[in-house]
Design a protein around this nucleic acid. Structure first.
Lengths: 188, 188
DNA sequence: ACCTGAACACCGTTCAAGT
DNA sequence: ACCTGAACACCGTTCAAGT
């Protein structure tokens, strides 16, 4: 059916993972959506673990690229920082989906090793980006920026989780405002 | 085997849920641990949904009581606030477990309705407690305290998620310090 | 090179049957 | 009142077989 079955499988698996987590990746329904049988998926991927890892890998790579774009199209580090939560907001807007990493963070203990590696890479990419932006912007010590970067990532991920169970994107926005007002996220 | 099979099932299910989420509640392994057959669980609980709801219900009730104890044994609202993260910290210390609510928040879309209700109740109980403590302590407007209470709960839950994937309780502690230093969590 | 049907051990669930 | 064995449709996975 598809020009490239492998890509079609990846796309379906990503969609399923953002809605239902790693556990919710279902070979038979993916195969059905792609137009093949579930056994055929094993021609393209060794196992559910390797499919999950491939999904997570591409996910964080896409996110890292998106972060680069935000930085390069922002007039200042402060503006980039302000735009950061938009990535997480977008998932909520788009069918109430969750950041793949937050999802898999919850399932983490049960994940295959290869998937865990990719989830960690997502967190690292985000924290590294935030660290860089904070460093450009401020005047504190580099150790502080690392800790603050992780704190911001953590708080934003938590906000997405809570906003999602309320199915309320405005709640996410309110939380970002509160983070800014209390000083967790520096304002421009 | 057990004096009370129902309680034994609940205890095993809670343990499994904190390690693997709702999805990880496995009737056959719970039955095996309790010393009965999996079909026997249906004598005590209508379904996996009602078992999951019972687990989540008891969980948030226990937490609410714990919060009451913290408040009543603290000399001030500020001290109670300082002790708040200890609840989430304890889960990490105790076999790297996750707060049941954070876990189920990730799985939320797939949860049976009755379980969703209990997860919401957990969040509400925490936010209500924080709101009360913040109100006792400070001098701002009541609307601000509500928002700040939710922001604190959200950030602490996120911190637990991230600390867990690093299997690192110290990271959780560092995040709490950063939350305090940046001003998200008010200091005594 | 790419796909399939049939089988495997696993899961939640049901139900008639046992004590 | 409490428990069980056997069956159901579902899952990831394997494998020999098809084109």
């Amino acid at each position: 059916m598809s020009v490239n079955a492998r890509e079609a499988i990846l796309a379906e698996a990503k969609h399923a993972a953002q809605k239902h987590g790693y556990n919710g990746i279902n070979f038979r329904s993916i195969a059905s959506a792609v137009g093949i049988k579930n056994a055929s998926i094993y021609y393209h991927f060794d196992s559910k673990a390797s499919l999950g890892a491939a999904v997570a890998h591409r996910y964080w790579q896409d996110t890292a690229q998106h972060l680069e774009t935000i930085r390069s199209t922002s007039a200042s580090a402060g503006e980039a920082l302000k735009r950061y939560p938009a990535i997480f907001r977008q998932s909520l807007e788009d069918d109430n989906r969750l950041c793949l990493s937050s999802f898999m963070a919850a399932e983490y203990e049960d994940l295959p090793h290869d998937v865990k590696v990719e989830v960690q890479a997502f967190v690292d990419a985000n924290v590294a980006w935030l660290n860089q932006v904070l460093s450009e912007k401020g005047t504190g010590s580099s150790e502080d920026y690392k800790k603050q970067a992780l704190a911001i990532y953590t708080a934003v991920a938590g906000a997405q989780l809570i906003a999602r169970i309320h199915k309320n994107t405005e709640l996410f926005d309110e939380l970002m405002v509160t983070y800014q007002q209390t000083g967790l996220i520096p304002i421009i």
